[in-house]
């Protein structure tokens, strides 16, 4: 028997008020897997992640994590079960220092453990080490995003959920960020990332789904989807798939991660 999925969504509908923004979504993610959710603004990517984290109530369906139903659990309870979450807009504590912010990510552990893990994070994100005493509000966008991800990793999660990590970051910084993430995968961490930046996400993740108007319309290996003209059409809304071949580096990404 294969091991059960780490995260499984069955027929999940959710939304704000009366009108659902997400319609009967099915999704599964195994241990150590990477999945990108890509799609245009307002397609329902963030809503999907919010539903997984218990920030909005489900209108239908169910979500399981490590075999356990998540119904009725608050965001913090889901985090404690082992879902590290870097929400949309990063949601850092602008007036707290980087070190304090990281320690709060493992608030329930003893002080010695918190410090040990904090130092691990400085090893993974060396850029943060000299900034340990800086207030999060004063960091650059890329540094802030690193803190948000590091904070989510402090609880030693089995699954990392990232909402639009590349927003507002310069191309080089995005590349750096995803490079750091790629390192983490060796430890068996599963990653679910919602991205508007399709190329970065498709290159990072093994599998991907395309979200359109609250439906998952396409799914498959990221490599295949990156070459699929329908993705270009759905995602950026350009019927002209030539836009992909006109990319500066040419062709679909092919290097394995």
């Amino acid at each position: 028997m294969p091991p059960p999925d780490l995260l499984r969504l069955e027929g999940v509908s959710a939304g704000y008020g009366r009108v659902p923004a997400l319609h009967a979504v099915d999704l599964a993610l195994g241990h150590g897997e990477t999945l990108a959710i890509i799609g245009a603004n307002g397609a329902g990517k963030t809503t999907l992640l919010r539903a997984i984290m218990g920030q909005i109530p489900l209108l239908g369906g169910q979500i399981r994590f490590a075999g356990r139903r998540l119904d009725g659990l608050d965001t913090h309870a889901r985090a404690r079960l082992g879902i590290g979450y870097a929400p949309e807009g990063r949601q850092l504590f602008p007036m707290l220092s980087v070190a304090d912010t990281l320690e709060l990510g493992a608030a329930r552990e003893p002080a010695a453990v918190r410090r040990e893990r904090r130092d691990e994070m400085f090893a993974i994100f060396p850029k943060l080490r000299p900034l340990r005493d800086a207030s999060c509000g004063l960091l650059s966008g890329g540094e802030q995003q690193m803190v948000a991800i590091a904070r989510a990793l402090m609880g030693r999660p089995a699954l990392l959920v990232l909402d639009e990590p590349s927003t507002g970051l310069a191309p080089r910084v995005i590349a750096e960020l995803y490079a750091s993430l790629a390192h983490l995968l060796d430890s068996g961490l599963a990653v679910l990332v919602a991205e508007q930046n399709a190329r970065a996400a498709l290159r990072f993740a093994r599998n991907a789904v395309v979200c359109e108007d609250g439906h998952l319309t396409l799914r498959g290996p990221a490599k295949t989807l990156a070459a699929d003209p329908r993705v270009a059409a759905a995602y950026i809304g350009m019927h002209d798939a030539s836009i992909w071949s006109a990319a500066p580096a040419g062709g679909a990404p092919d290097a394995p991660i």
Binding site: E176, A200, A247, P253
Partner: peptide
Amino acid sequence: VLNDPAVITAYLGVEMEGATDAA
């Protein structure tokens, strides 16, 4: 405009040479 390389990079995301090198 839509076939301008700069636009494509900005709009669709970057090529990830840096990332693959680092990984």
